[in-house]
């Protein structure tokens, strides 16, 4: 398993280099310019100067190599300097957002906590809702519960978050007045009331995303359970005279969890990726909102860096999912 992991990690390096180049070229070739947000009242000469000041007029390969250097040397060195008070980075320029002129990693650092709390909670809630629904739906296939579960999943699948989110706002914020519509980033959780306030402001985005997440995972859980439910070893377990609880929870569920755990692990990078629409809708200043804002403003360094970090996360979690699969399923050995 260890050699497998190491081999995969080594293989990931060239993969990621290729990905970084492809992303860079894609982002660069995408239509749009960092100047498109600037009012028409700004004269062309000034626009040209601003582009030069951003370094956006450099050839694409020069910018790519510079970005590589900043990403793999300057940023880690800056981080190291920050920890140990050294001066490795030597004041070299970090990756700066064209939109805000702030270091991209500072922005990401500011935004990760919100994304992880809100989107992470939504994912967790989604999983916790999805598993029982999936298990019981499969166990009582075609029952009323299963039909309702299917309906729930279909709604979660097909209703886009901008719609469900707006609906939730209108119900819970406008009509009932329970929750705030805008996420307050500066809220510090220090005591019970502020903790409750944090829960209140998380409630609506978590509901919106949890519904979507639960829909997907509950379907996986259900179909995996159904696959295993008809396996001979389940019949064996029944023939052994095991109680239904043991048959379902020990034999069927434990085997059904193998693919589901993988799916859950593969979904984790999307937590870091944030939720573009939901974050925007509820004013959660997470990674997703940063990405869409950067795309709108053609903020290339920000888009490029975020896209590459997502690529790294996806590669990493693919590996984690494979390793998990191996740990959970004794039939699979990678050596």
């Amino acid at each position: 398993m260890l050699t497998f992991t190491l081999r995969r990690l080594l293989l990931a390096i060239p993969t990621l280099f290729v990905i970084s180049l492809v992303i860079f070229l894609l982002v660069d070739l995408a239509p749009g310019s960092p100047m498109s947000e600037i009012p028409l009242t700004v004269p062309p000469e000034v626009r040209k100067k601003m582009i030069e000041a951003l370094g956006a007029d450099q050839p694409v390969m020069v910018r790519y190599v510079l970005w590589l250097r900043q990403f793999f040397w300057v940023e880690p060195a800056t981080l190291f300097d920050g920890w140990f008070g050294t001066n490795l980075a030597g004041g070299e320029q970090r990756i700066l957002s064209w939109q805000s002129r702030a270091p991209v990693f500072t922005i990401i650092g500011q935004r990760i906590p919100q994304t992880l709390t809100v989107i992470g909670t939504a994912y967790l809630v989604g999983v916790l809702i999805a598993l029982p629904i999936g298990i019981y739906s499969a166990y009582r296939q075609y029952s009323l519960f299963d039909q309702l579960g299917t309906l729930f999943a279909m709604i979660g699948f097909s209703v886009p978050t901008f719609f469900s989110g707006t609906l939730i706002i209108i119900i819970f914020a406008v009509t009932l007045g329970w929750f705030p519509t805008k996420y307050d980033t500066n809220l510090a959780v220090t005591d019970w009331p502020s903790f409750l306030q944090q829960l209140r402001q998380m409630a609506m985005p978590v509901m919106t995303l949890g519904l979507a997440n639960a829909a997907v995972i509950s379907r996986y859980m259900r179909s995996s359970m159904l696959d295993n439910m008809t396996m001979d070893y389940v019949r064996t377990a029944r023939a052994k005279g095991m109680s239904e609880r043991v048959v379902v929870l020990k034999h069927v569920l434990r085997n059904s969890m193998i693919p589901v755990v993988t799916v859950i692990a593969l979904g984790i990078p999307s937590i870091f990726g944030g939720a573009i629409i939901t974050e925007n809708l509820f004013g959660v200043n997470g990674i997703g909102a940063a990405l869409i804002g950067a795309i709108h403003a053609s903020d290339l360094p920000m888009v490029q860096t975020l896209a590459f970090i997502f690529a790294v996360l996806i590669v990493t979690f693919n590996l984690i999912a494979d390793v998990l699969y191996g740990l959970l399923d004794p039939r699979i050995r990678y050596d």
Binding site: Y233, T236, G241, H251
Partner: peptide
């Protein structure tokens, strides 16, 4: 009652691979 009766009657399945819990 059926569960308690199970020990007296058993089954050997066709596919020995599928009938044994892989985990």
């Amino acid at each position: 009652a059926l569960r308690r009766k199970r020990p007296t009657m058993q089954m050997v399945f066709q596919d020995p691979q599928a009938s044994l819990n892989p985990r």
